[in-house]
């Protein structure tokens, strides 16, 4: 199947996903369920990775800035910039593409092969809207909070590791994370997060929804969902970076 067939099917699916909900109260209940399923359940992995990555970035920055000509507050500054601009929005999104994307594709794929989607269609329910819209909405709502938490924990992890390893003083680190702060970079980061949330959920849902066959195909759909979501995250990350930084 060529790229244009996939694109065509994807946009037809999205048209169905964003058509008017049949019963909004049911959709709303599903959105709450998905916020828990997609978002809250991802908290532990995001927290662990963010704290450790913050620590690692700080140690690497301290090692790189060993010259007496570079002020020590540059460690905090570098950690903040790395985490705010790239680590939290992009790397954490790639991790979520693995966790959430594979989960969505396998869940919807399994529903397809066990005829649960057919059951919805025969009942007269827009299966694409009922299954996919709440996932996209939930991700767009919850991902910014997850990434904000990741930013906070990453910077805190850097602080804890920097001070514990005696790479810089508490004052220097805190001064560094406040230095030359430009608020528009947060706007850039959260724009990326929202775009990535949409990519992860819609692309994974697409591969799950068009699963045909058996358990083997569900596995393949899950893998494709992660691979294509990751590639698209990087691709759109590049486009957005170009848009925001080329001024």
């Amino acid at each position: 199947m060529n790229l244009f067939t996939h694109l065509g099917r994807y946009f037809i699916l999205m048209y169905r996903v964003f058509s008017k909900p049949q019963r909004f109260s049911v959709y709303w209940r599903q959105i709450i369920h998905e916020i828990n399923n997609i978002g809250i359940s991802s908290l532990p992995i995001i927290a662990i990775i963010s704290v450790f990555m913050g620590g690692i970035i700080t140690i690497q920055a301290a090692f790189g800035f060993s010259s007496p000509w570079v002020p020590l507050y540059a460690i905090g500054f570098t950690t903040r910039e790395s985490i705010l601009l790239e680590f939290s929005p992009t790397i954490v999104s790639l991790i979520l593409a693995g966790k959430v994307g594979s989960n969505i594709a396998s869940e919807i794929g399994a529903m397809r092969i066990t005829e649960q989607i057919d059951a919805l269609e025969i009942m007269g329910i827009n299966s694409a809207g009922y299954l996919i819209f709440p996932k996209i909405a939930a991700a767009i709502i919850i991902f910014p909070f997850l990434i904000a938490l990741s930013m906070f924990l990453g910077i805190w992890g850097g602080y804890a590791m920097g001070v514990a390893a005696n790479a810089c003083s508490s004052y220097e680190y805190i001064f560094g994370i406040q230095a030359y702060f430009e608020p528009w970079k947060l706007y850039y980061s959260f724009t990326k997060v929202i775009v990535f949330a949409y990519i992860i959920t819609s692309v994974s849902s697409y591969f799950g929804y068009y699963t045909y066959g058996g358990a083997l195909e569900v596995g393949k759909s899950s893998t494709r969902a992660v691979v294509y979501s990751s590639i698209l995250i990087l691709f759109f990350g590049l486009i957005l970076t170009n848009l925001f930084f080329s001024r």
């Binding site: 066990t114 005829e115 649960q116 269609e121 025969i122 007269g124």
Partner: peptide
């Protein structure tokens, strides 16, 4: 029109197709 008829259809699938 199709939607109207579909709401009057009940179907028992081979594997049950219950929502897990």
């Amino acid at each position: 029109g199709k939607q109207e008829i579909r709401t009057k259809i009940g179907m028992l699938f081979q594997g049950g197709a219950l929502f897990d």
